[in-house]
Design a protein around this nucleic acid. Structure first.
Length: 329
DNA sequence: AAGCCTTGCAACCGCCGTTCA
DNA sequence: ATGAACGGCGGTTGCAAGGCT
């Protein structure tokens, strides 16, 4: 043949790096309206200069309405550790046990926190073991054989069979699976059969679309706190997603000028979020609503912040990029 | 206060499995 | 039966923010 694999996109003509608000909105509104049957064709149809893969990733890991963000609880972390022992680096499978969590997020948590925790734990136990006779038991830790960088190799062999069993058992029997198999600390509400992946997001369901969209608009930074109710108004939604992808260049360009903003600001929305963030958040929402002509007349929370809507440049949109995260470092 | 180091995370890359013509 | 196209997955990287000296 000699052709090789065709690149998924022309990297020369494709934008890379952080997503801008405008791009996010375009992607969201497009998916809400049309779904995502074809990721490769989507960027073009949505007027995005992005690779289809990039769009998919952005949607799945960030923009999806049901994506849950914020710090992992101790229970979640424990569950991840347990699942990882069984499944290895099957992040998507592990993620399936945590509705709203993405494989990328779990992978990151594992690599940044849990792995280290286990390594140090393992070192301690290893020191103890060294004083004893060599034990043939190699299953005491998932790290026993993973000295190299490639954890894929380390886990591939020993877990494959178990993984399949586990997958079958847990994915098909959620809600009715035997409690003994279920990771400790995970309630039925935290592990539900509502496994979410990109293809299961309600983009094909008109009602689901509206619900998802509400969640997005109202909860772009606050998926978990039901703020969506504030803007759960059909009229608003209709208007919001009648935005033309081609015609309102000025609007999209204006959004672009804000620079990247990240919905990771919804982190720590467990009620401990600083009011500073909420003010900025609400300003942003108000601004968007204003620009879209969506101001809610009955004065939701978003309007309680104050009437001041600063124009471009004064809203310090840079704030929306990783600046108000609750620091856990 | 400034510079360096570490950490965390979004995004990219390339491979693999599945689907479809 | 075959190969291209596509979606999905896991590994890795780059960068920004925070911490430390």
């Amino acid at each position: 043949m000699g052709k090789g694999r065709a690149p998924c996109c022309d990297k020369e003509k494709v934008k890379r790096g952080p997503w801008s608000p405008s791009e996010d909105l375009r992607l969201i509104s497009f998916i809400q309206k049309h779904g995502h049957q074809n990721w490769r064709a989507l960027p073009k149809q949505a007027g995005l200069l992005r690779c289809g893969k990039s769009c998919r990733l952005r949607w799945i890991n960030y923009l999806r309405p049901d994506v849950k963000r914020g710090n992992f609880t101790k229970e979640e972390e424990d569950a991840i550790i347990r699942l990882h022992e069984t499944l290895g680096n099957k992040w998507s499978t592990i993620a399936a046990h945590f509705p709203g969590r993405t494989d990328n997020e779990i992978k990151n948590v594992w690599n940044t926190h849990l792995k280290k925790r286990l390594v140090s734990k393992n070192e301690n136990t290893q020191k103890k073991d060294e004083s004893k006779e060599f034990s043939t038991s190699s299953s005491s830790s998932c790290f026993s054989s993973s000295s190299g960088k490639n954890s894929r190799e380390a886990f591939a062999m020993p877990v494959s069979d178990n993984a399949q069993d586990f997958k079958t058992d847990h994915l098909s029997n959620h809600g009715s699976s035997s409690p003994s198999e279920e990771p400790e600390g995970l309630s039925s509400s935290s592990i539900s059969s509502n496994i979410t992946n990109s293809s299961q997001v309600g983009v094909s369901n008109p009602e689901g679309q509206v619900g998802s969209l509400c969640n997005f608009i109202g909860g772009y930074y606050d998926v978990n706190n039901n703020a969506s109710e504030e803007v759960n108004k059909p009229g608003i939604l209709d208007t919001a997603f009648d935005i033309s992808f081609e015609s309102d260049l000025e609007f999209w360009n204006m959004l672009d000028s804000f620079g990247p903003f990240q919905s990771d600001e919804i982190q720590s929305h467990d009620g401990t979020q600083s009011s500073n963030f909420e003010v900025e958040n609400n300003k942003w929402l108000m601004y968007l609503e204003h620009e879209l002509g969506l101001e809610s007349k009955d004065g939701g929370e978003a309007n309680s912040v104050g009437p001041e809507i600063k124009p471009e440049g004064e809203m310090e949109m840079g704030h929306y990029h990783n600046t108000v995260q609750p620091s856990t470092k």
